[in-house]
Nucleic acid binder design. Structure first.
Length: 263
DNA sequence: ATGTCGCCCTCCGGGCGA
């Protein structure tokens, strides 16, 4: 069994205690992070190494973004271009012991105004999705896991109100269409939705502005683990560790998404 | 809705991004 996790930690340095607690309670083999918010020369390697992550790859910039892949099993960075502007949004690796490829992405949030003509951030988000889609349509890679904070809640039941949220970035039609187009490039399998069936609502992110947090609070399912079709049958379980959202002090606003593969 | 975080570069609090 191989346990792979994606978690937007909103600062790896601020979240070290929670990462340690999560690691001891959930024992991931591979932990993929987004929003590490740290330059590579300041990445907390020793602390994460002590948690058992002897294998570490990270791509960060100051202040924002930043992705990392931490593992207890060997990982090798692929010799391939990173998506976007190399601003800490994409790492692609192989897991030689399992003959797997893994792509960790942090899709741009896109700002507030869902109009690419008036909002550069939204244009960049759509552009990033288009590049990701083109890459995957061209390569159609085998035994591949595509995961991360995709900043899109694609399903009607991935949001607290489909009707209301259609006006807001993360659930506009153009974003939903972009996500569906990505899925169709390779018949990607949305792992969480195989275990938590629609119309069950489920979320991975809740605004810090939500006062009394509960899993049913107004949230969005922004984090996803997609499997190439040849891995679909290997899925044992996908679950959201929503409990971390109430950990004290200072939780991330995202919960970890945990996938178990029979390998 | 404009309520909360975390980072930065310092005018150490206000701007930025989420």
């Amino acid at each position: 069994m191989l346990r792979i996790v994606t978690w937007n930690v909103n600062s790896v340095r601020t979240r070290l205690e929670h990462i340690a607690r999560f690691s001891s309670e959930y024992a991931p083999d591979v932990l993929c992070l987004q929003e590490t918010k740290v330059r590579d020369d300041m990445f907390p390697k020793p602390a994460l190494s002590e948690m058992g992550y002897t294998q570490q790859l990270f791509a960060g910039i100051p202040s924002n973004n930043g992705v990392a892949i931490l593992a207890k099993t060997p990982i090798l960075e692929r010799n391939a271009p990173r998506l976007g502007r190399d601003d800490g949004r994409h790492l692609s690796v192989t897991l030689p012991e399992y003959d797997l490829r893994l792509d960790n992405v942090y899709v741009p949030a896109g700002g507030n105004l869902p109009d690419p003509e008036l909002n550069d951030k939204f244009a960049y988000k759509l552009d990033f999705m288009a590049h990701l889609t083109t890459m995957m349509a061209t390569e159609r890679p085998k035994r591949t896991i595509l995961l991360g904070d995709m900043n899109i809640a694609p399903g009607e039941y991935d949001v607290f109100s489909h009707r209301q949220m259609l006006k807001f970035v993360s659930h506009t039609l153009v974003e939903i269409t972009a996500f569906e187009k990505l899925l169709r490039t390779h018949d990607w399998h949305n792992s969480l939705r195989a275990d938590v069936l629609e119309p069950q609502r489920i979320y991975s992110w809740w605004s810090y502005r939500v006062r009394k947090w509960q899993p049913e609070s107004r949230g969005l399912l922004l984090d996803h683990i997609l499997l190439s079709p040849d891995l679909m049958a290997q899925q044992q379980q996908a679950q959201l560790a929503q409990v971390t959202r109430s950990w004290k002090p200072k939780p991330s606003d995202h919960a970890p998404l945990v996938l178990d593969l029979r390998l």
